[in-house]
Design a protein around this nucleic acid. Structure first.
Lengths: 352, 352
DNA sequence: GGGAAAATGACTAACGTACCTCAAAATATC
DNA sequence: GATATTTTGAGGTACGTTAGTCATTTTCCC
């Protein structure tokens, strides 16, 4: 039951402490036969370095920057809240999480913010990457400077980001399409789609997924052309009101992006809320209430807390050069109906 | 940016190191005015103890026992696999997770296993608690001996367990009912329910939730009386085959417990698989395949990896006497359709 | 076999906290 | 005001690792 230390390893391998240290920490100047001896001893003794002692000795600190959109978006606010709250609780663990609001619609500003970072300021960056080429370039340059970058929520696959923390948006769109197809009766009907902008990668992918499923498995359903509301509540309210007026017999509605609040108010005002099957994204106080009031029928979501924690773990793993446990870092596509809503936690008000 | 240590706190408070230590670790013999001075200094300086140094110094080890059912059940196997895999990876963190298989159907044996534990052997216990009174008593006695106990997957609310790590099974049942109600056309139809045993708390709760929703919102659907297959594949296959023969026009089927493999094979064999809407529990290789083949229409699940990690975090928090972050420890009710299945991870074969 | 280079050993000082002892000072008790 | 008691200070050791330095040994090459 006693702990195996490097002393034991040294003894077992018949070498000195210094040599064991050289092997364990990959320092140069050790013959490979000796390396083998040490490694052999390590795993016959099943030596595991003491994380506490190691952490103390190398007095490493992890400084991470989180670049998160600052818009009036309940999901992003949740993400920011989770990040700042972790910034506090983990500061004892030699973690310094700095949250920096960015304007996700201004590619140059985001690229500029990224350009200011290097290893003197931080050891890792998580960014909700808008799909601008200058952002991709800034990510790549930052990594060339030795700072690992992970994308959060919205990926930028063309870049060299080391990891993406977020959901598979095509699959999310497919799920939305499946729910619409199955919730609606097997008869012709029209489905409206409201997105923020198809220029946003995640929105485009969700649309693609939804369309795939509807066209393949529910051909009796007719997808109206996508309306873009720029994730703005007022615009969405307007769009949805008009859609409902133009299509009094509308069967389904898929709100691909944010701006749920606008969509919900237009639906409620129209009096058609219950007859239209509506699927939205992200669990916020508004979508939650809409589900309970049968205005929304399903919500596809991703857990912001999981995403922040996962991003931190991944960045730490990248800094330490240890492998990432894929299974643990996979972010699930959550499906919420009115019946499986998580209990509310006490949170300050937010807008969307 | 430099780290605040107890030295700084001592200096700021105008007391000695020893006194700071006494206050911080709640040792006796300090005047309350002094305590106040120190605490004041602690939070003006925002002192946070260094977890690495503390961990090293108090060479604390956390020894946790996980008592998990050993039956041929893919979900429990996943749970066991996650637990043993964490036992390895966390052994460096002074965590010793011991997994002990139990026969969940033998209350006396489980109680006997619990009775053998005390603080000389382990610092915390997580148990998938079968609903026997002797198990409740054993849990309470174990806690009286100073070992915190959390229940896992299946709760025992009457006991004094400190926490329950698992899903709200009533809500899970409601979700299943909702999916059946919404996937089926709005016309009369029969729904069959196969459980392991209504004597199992989680199964009973799921049934209750499902019935609530169906009776309230989908009264045109007729719930057949529950068949109990004891989570056994052969029994389930038999039951389902008979159900399908007796009810050729069966509209829906809810498989409340394990034994999915039996249910699936009977459905496939009957040729009625596609016409019956089927909801099952837990994501296993079999239910996954059934979803993809349109034999199952939805699967309600809980993530075994999350549950194990949560149980470990909770037990550690209980040992350290620090508060539990509720939001982080809440286990979600996952809903899987064929479209939002997580990518498969490489795992050894399992049976169910 | 002699000299250079490479490999290894022996030691030490951190890192920040926990926990212990013993003495000194402050306060309480009569 | 003397004594008993409580409170505080000073100092040390231990925890297991990292990351050095410098001396010594081994190996290699001509």
């Amino acid at each position: 039951m006693k702990r195996v230390t490097i002393h034991d390893v040294a003894e077992a391998a018949g070498v000195s402490l210094a040599t064991v240290d050289r092997v364990l920490n990959g320092r140069p100047g050790v013959r490979k036969t000796t390396i083998a001896k040490v490694k052999q001893a390590v795993d016959t003794l099943n030596y595991k370095p003491d994380v506490f002692a190691a952490g103390l000795a190398k007095k490493r600190t992890y400084r991470f920057h989180f670049l998160l959109p600052n818009g009036p978006n309940a999901f992003m606010e949740d993400l920011t809240r989770e990040a700042t709250s972790h910034a506090e609780t983990m500061s004892g663990d030699r973690m310094h999480v700095h949250v920096e609001p960015i304007d996700a619609f201004d590619g140059h500003r985001v690229a500029g913010t990224l350009a200011l970072l290097d290893h003197t300021v931080c050891d890792g960056v998580a960014v909700v990457a808008p799909a601008f080429p200058e952002v991709r370039a800034a990510i790549d340059r930052l990594q060339d400077r030795g700072v690992p970058v992970v994308t959060l929520v919205s990926d930028h696959p063309a870049s060299n980001r080391r990891h993406f923390v977020g959901i598979d948006n095509v699959a999310a769109g497919r799920t939305a399409g499946r729910l619409l197809g199955r919730f609606l009766p097997r008869q012709p009907g029209k489905i409206a789609i409201v997105a923020g902008s198809l220029g946003l990668r995640d929105h485009a992918e969700r649309y693609q997924g939804c369309r795939e499923v509807i066209e393949q498995d529910y051909p009796h359903l007719d997808l109206l052309k996508v309306r873009e509301g720029r994730d703005d509540n007022a615009r969405n309210a307007d769009l949805v009101a008009r859609l409902l007026k133009e299509n009094p017999e509308l069967a389904g509605l898929y709100n691909i992006g944010a701006g749920n609040r606008g969509t919900i108010s237009a639906l409620s005002a129209s009096g058609q809320a219950e007859s239209v099957v509506v699927v939205g994204h992200e669990l916020t106080p508004y979508t939650r209430e809409a589900l309970q009031a049968d205005v929304f029928d399903a919500v596809i979501a991703q857990d912001p807390g999981h995403e922040i924690r996962s991003a931190i773990r991944v960045l730490k793993a990248l800094c330490d050069g240890v492998p990432i446990i894929d299974g643990q870092e996979r972010i699930g596509i959550d499906v919420f109906l009115k019946d499986n809503l998580p209990a509310v936690t006490d949170r300050p008000d937010s807008t969307e």
